[in-house]
């Protein structure tokens, strides 16, 4: 297939994934912020939402303070924020339009329909309307993903789209960990006590894993288990390990189909091997923050390797 087509498909899936992530971040943050002050920690939950879902420096050039209004505007609608939900959907749709023939009708209809519908939302919403808006965004991505899953041929086009989703997911999960790692460190258990419970469940909510957590661990919420779930648990669809399982599988399919392996296959399987042999205790022992930062760098390297090998 055309390198440009693969590139656009890859980015369509990165941007739709990102839109979903930003929506979930906003949803979880609205919930957290609606708790009585006594249940909240010292930090600014709005600022931390911006830090994990977008670019805090950019935010600060556009707004004086981080509060519900400004962060909602920035993350959901602001055209100057390349990762605002609006821009994610627009960029995804623009990419889709430029490779219209690589998409099935159902996928195009889902994205194009969403883009047309997005224009009909009044950005001046109350909390209830905003929450319905976020639900709508999540539904759009579900429909789009489902359309891809149900209607695409299982060929390189499909595999590149899976790569886009998985690289983006891994990045998103790692970003949450990067911003909130301090909440998961052992000392905070003693310092914050039950206070942090709501921060922890917010993290789980951001990756849609509140229920999953209980099914997997069958015990009350513990910060190191949250880290374990997000980093190492292969059953958890947004964990780093699961994302890399998907990356390795689809990169292998591509390599087999094209009859040639390259740097991206080597990088992805090295990272998966590392995640498979890790223990959460050892990660905490060596420093959670260092681990996450290192992972983000590695993940970016993989993105660059995929681009170099296939998309240019």
């Amino acid at each position: 297939m055309l390198a440009r087509t693969a590139d656009s498909l890859y980015w369509v899936f990165r941007y739709t994934e990102r839109a979903d992530f930003v929506a979930r971040t906003l949803d979880a943050t609205v919930r957290l912020a609606s708790l009585p002050q006594a249940y909240l920690g010292k930090g600014n939950e709005w600022e931390s939402a911006v830090a994990s879902a977008s670019d805090l420096d950019l935010f600060k050039t556009l707004y004086a303070t981080a509060n519900e209004d400004t962060v909602r505007d920035f993350l959901a609608f602001n055209p100057q924020n390349p990762s605002s939900i609006r821009n994610c959907l627009q960029t995804a749709r623009e990419n889709a339009r430029s490779v219209r023939t690589a998409l099935t009708f159902e996928m195009w209809e889902a994205l194009n329909g969403a883009w047309l519908e997005l224009k009909s939302f009044d950005t001046n919403m109350n909390r209830e309307e905003f929450s319905r808006f976020l639900d709508w965004v999540k539904r759009v991505v579900l429909v789009f993903d489902g359309a891809a899953y149900r209607s695409m041929l299982r060929n390189d086009a499909y595999w590149f789209s899976r790569l886009g989703s998985a690289v983006e997911r891994a990045d998103n999960t790692a970003r949450i960990l990067d911003v909130k790692y301090h909440l998961l460190l052992p000392e905070s258990e003693w310092v914050g006590g039950s206070l942090d419970y709501f921060q922890w469940t917010t993290i789980l909510r951001e990756v849609s894993a509140v229920t999953a957590y209980h099914w997997v661990y069958r015990q009350s919420v513990k910060p190191w288990l949250i880290a374990d779930l997000l980093i190492l648990n292969r059953q958890m669809p947004r964990s780093l390990a699961n994302c890399y399982e998907i990356l390795v599988r689809h990169l292998d399919l591509i390599a087999e189909f094209y009859g040639r392996r390259g740097p991206s296959q080597r990088l992805a399987s090295a990272t998966l091997n590392r995640l498979s042999s890790e223990r959460i205790e050892r990660i905490f022992g060596n420093g959670l923050h260092e681990f996450v930062e290192d992972f983000i760098t590695t993940n970016n390297k993989l993105g660059a390797a995929i681009a170099e090998q296939y998309l240019n």
């Binding site: 297939m1 055309l2 390198a3 440009r4 087509t5 693969a6 490779v99 219209r100 023939t101 390189d156 590149f160 591509i254 094209y258 040639r260 296939y310 998309l311 240019n312």
Partner: peptide, 26 residues
């Protein structure tokens, strides 16, 4: 789409030794 052929833009094509190629993932 209906023809089942690649929709290319100029940047997808290049000419080498008077032969036209398209840039693909392979």
């Amino acid at each position: 789409d209906k023809l089942g052929v690649e929709l290319v833009e100029a940047s997808d094509l290049f000419v080498k030794d008077d032969v036209v190629y398209m840039r693909t993932t392979q």
